[in-house]
């Protein structure tokens, strides 16, 4: 054992729900690792989980991922995401973008288009915005019409 003790209920069964929750919190949400697990194997799992999340988010937020520079996205996203429990690639990317506002034009446009179509309070799942709307973003007119984005260059 690598520290900690197993209680009687652990050894005789029972407590599966609690033990599963402790493990998942330790793997993705920064909680302490329960006793007895192989630290190296768990760390490798955490790294692999973060890399998979980074790839998922890059599919949903391709411009945001590209804005990190060639080959840099898995590293920069993982550095932010470690300890942030996964909320799905749409929210993970959105939260990352709000915490680390992108500097490049393609990524800020990607974020602006998401903000045009969805309302997201950072706490609950994003919901589609209703009704038509128009925004001006970096010389481009972004129109929301029937749930879709239409874009027009204005200069």
């Amino acid at each position: 054992m690598s520290g900690g003790t197993l209680t009687g209920s652990d050894l005789t069964g029972g407590g599966l729900a609690r033990r599963q929750e402790e493990l998942v919190r330790a793997l993705v949400a920064g909680a302490a690792m329960p006793a007895g697990f192989d630290a190296g194997a768990v760390a490798a799992t955490q790294t692999a989980l973060l890399r998979k999340r980074a790839e998922d988010v890059a599919r949903t937020w391709p411009r945001l991922a590209a804005s990190a520079g060639a080959g840099q996205w898995p590293r920069v996203f993982s550095a932010w995401a470690a300890g942030h429990a996964p909320l799905g690639s749409l929210r993970d990317g959105w939260d990352y973008a709000r915490a680390n506002p992108p500097g490049d034009a393609a990524a800020t446009r990607e974020l602006a288009l998401r903000e045009l179509l969805w309302t997201y309070d950072g706490e609950n799942s994003p919901r589609p915005r209703r009704g038509p709307a128009a925004r001006l973003h970096s010389g481009e007119l972004l129109i929301r019409w029937r749930g879709r984005a239409l874009t027009f260059r204005t200069r």
């Binding site: 493990l23 998942v24 793997l27 949400a29 998979k52 998922d56 429990a85 996964p86 799905g88």
Partner: peptide, 8 residues
């Protein structure tokens, strides 16, 4: 588990 998604 307990409302926390592992994502994998």
């Amino acid at each position: 588990a307990g409302g926390v998604e592992a994502g994998h």
